[in-house]
Design a protein around this nucleic acid. Structure first.
Lengths: 173, 173
DNA sequence: ATCTTTTATTTCATCGATGAAATGTTTTCT
DNA sequence: AGAAAACATTTCATCGATGAAATAAAAGAT
């Protein structure tokens, strides 16, 4: 929808001109950040579009996937907040919606009774198993033309970038 | 804020377990998509945090930067919609806010009088020139430890990914 | 035993984004 | 000239996200 290539071209020209006026700008790095932002949000759009028919948004889906991918299919709201990068208010709302659809259940915690144990249900598992396979061709197509070395490199570089971002936000305190 | 590394670790374990249950999943590619999404949104958070003190969000800032980086400092709403990936309604709202702050002006188009010409003002330029330099150290820090080859690779791979995403959304019609 | 902290929810108010539909100009088509 | 298309705005209704504050229950600290 967004025509990424066209946006990237115009970004390239723009950064070129700005760095003429402001030479101390780290142009290569600025370009990389913009690329990350553009490709990232395009990917997000693509994903949301595929989730829409199932009446799930990214946060809902991510929450469900975290539970699905857990050894015992459960977690707590606090943990889900952390891994899905959501506030507590938001997670309560998400959980309410998923409970209402019968995809998860809430129980009282056993060890620590302050916690709530959120379990994925059989229906939740079935939904995930129905949703995932149709995504596979598109996920593969995204990386068409990537050699094994390309994938390894991208993987390595994204993780390195992630570590740097963590470092940045840690210092920001 | 999000502790990206921790989220990535849990994603790795999760994908490992899911691909045991669903072996036909393209695990490496799924991992890469998740990485892109996570790093992308972390980057977005980082950027928004830096913009907040100036009372600008990402869309506002992007719109202003597009104008700033233009040879003649102007564009039209339609063009801005395209390059900032915004709907027309949204762009009208953004432009209203920027006009109110004196950062841009609206004029009637000369060649095509249906179009509106949006110009960045002197105040708009001053704001951009004041905002950018403090961002530079952080942009550089994001890519700390990246060799020149790393940056070239990341650049190349992101552009390749972008082309594939464009292809995907074109086919989706 | 009391105080504090942790955990989750509820309530409330707000903000930005979104999309559809109607409107008004201006240009283009035929 | 008249019809159709393009451009931008306005209006309206809605939705998801957000954050602060109050509440309640349980665990931990001293």
């Amino acid at each position: 929808m967004a025509n990424l290539t066209k946006c990237i071209n115009m970004m390239d020209e723009g950064i070129g001109r700005v760095s003429m006026v402001i030479p101390q700008m780290p142009a290569a790095e600025a370009r990389l950040s913009r690329l990350m932002l553009m490709v990232g949000s395009s990917l997000e759009e693509e994903l949301e579009a595929k989730l829409k028919p199932h009446k799930l948004n990214h946060s809902d889906f991510l929450t469900l996937m975290i539970l699905y991918s857990r050894p015992d299919g459960h977690s707590t709201p606090g943990e889900l907040c952390e891994f899905a990068s959501q506030g507590a208010t938001n997670m309560t709302r998400i959980a309410n919606a998923l409970v209402k659809r019968g995809l998860i259940t809430r129980r009282a915690g056993e060890a620590d009774r302050r916690c709530v144990l959120i379990h994925i249900t059989a229906a939740g598992r079935r939904l995930v198993q129905k949703m995932l396979p149709p995504l596979f061709p598109r996920i593969s197509a995204m990386f068409a033309g990537f050699s094994e070395a390309d994938k390894r490199d991208l993987n390595r570089l994204l993780r390195k970038l992630a570590r740097n971002l963590d470092q940045l936000s840690k210092e920001a305190v």
